Simulated assay, not measured.
Amino acid sequence: MSISLEDLARKAKVSKTTVSLVINGKSEEYRISKETQKKIQVLAKEYNFKPNSTARALRLKKSLTIGLIIPYLNRHFGRVAEVLEQTAREAGYQIIIAITDDFLETEYDLINNLAARNIDGLILATMMNRDQYFKNPVIKKMPVMLIDRRLEGDDIGWVVSDDETGTYDLVSTLCKEGIQDIHFIGGIQKLSTSIDRLKGYKKALRDQGIGYDQQKVQQTGYAVKDGYEMTKNIFQKIKQGPQAIFTSAITLLEGLLQYTKEHDSEMLNITRVITYDDHPMLDYLQTPIISVRQNAEEIAKKAFEVMHGILEQNKEFSQELIKPKLILR
């Protein structure tokens, strides 16, 4: 059973106000010593202290809820959502998760629905462009942080993977092996993830002295079926297969693997495959696939840290690039 704030303050030998400030993440603002913070946090965990969220919400005139809108619950976004929910819960906030399936109209509806629930802020992987974003009447009324996908301009806060650098490192690895014929299978063209990954691909080719060929680039979507169809297009044009294929998402890799399994699994002995995103199952494939692993945990924690600072301490939003990790196999 959880103890009360009064009991926790008595055990820590501090005031109820001090306990409240520490629990609510305002220790630094009110210059509470590290020693006192640690003592309160240890006791809170030991005695399973649970803040009265209803009373706190009424006192602060907040709902203590944050909306999270993401396109899918795949491995990457699922992990982001999981860590974000855990981090928010520890700070006394509840995350409400909604899925768009990358449909813009669905995103608009979900933003309105969450706003009607009086959320305090919104963390969003958006399909909108900059103009649509700033014309949205709901967006103007609440703190918003973009996640995974960014929009241009220094007046929008975001936390995203460094997609350009991650792709650059990945493609450069193949180029340094002497492979020059690398086809690009990408997602939705207008999204920053697609734009930045294509930039990284082009830059890697240029720095290795390899010419860019638009005919080797396809970008139709991030669904498994998109990966399947784009792979099909490549092998219909090049019967023996290209030297290498880069897939810009794990779902596109899944489509590629599905196609090769149905048609000729020996294709992968001729064509090297590299992918943005990672999955533990890649360690068990007979054909080694080099990948880039996004740091979903850091993305989630940083997004909440920034949003929490905005809501609790009136801090400004920030723009954060999180470096992914190259996984060699």
Rank of each mutant, 00 (worst) to 15 (best):
K202Q: 13
K202T: 12
K202L: 06
K202N: 07
K203T: 13
A204G: 04
A204R: 03
R206G: 05
R206D: 14
R206A: 13
R206V: 12
Q208V: 09
G209Q: 07
G211P: 04
D213H: 13
D213R: 10
Q215A: 12
K216R: 15
K216P: 03
K216G: 03
V217D: 07
Q218M: 14
Q218S: 13
Q219W: 07
T220H: 02
G221W: 00
G221V: 02
G221Q: 04
G221D: 06
A223D: 15
A223K: 09
V224Y: 10
D226F: 00
G227D: 02
G227Y: 05
Y228R: 08
E229M: 14
E229H: 15
M230R: 03
M230Y: 03
T231C: 08
K232I: 11
K232E: 12
N233Q: 13
F235H: 11
F235A: 09
F235V: 11
F235Q: 11
Q236S: 15
Q236C: 11
K237Y: 09
K239H: 14
K239N: 14
K239A: 13
K239S: 15
Q240D: 15
Q240Y: 12
Q240F: 11
P242Q: 07
Q243D: 12
Q243V: 01
A244P: 01
A244W: 03
I245S: 05
F246P: 03
F246Y: 12
S248W: 00
A249I: 03
I250T: 05
I250M: 10
T251I: 06
L253Q: 04
E254R: 10
E254V: 04
G255R: 02
G255W: 01
L257N: 01
L257W: 01
L257R: 00
Y259N: 12
Y259T: 12
Y259S: 09
T260V: 15
E262N: 15
H263M: 10
H263Q: 13
S265R: 09
L268V: 10
L268W: 04
L268A: 04
I270R: 15
T271V: 05
R272D: 03
R272K: 15
R272G: 00
V273Q: 04
V273S: 01
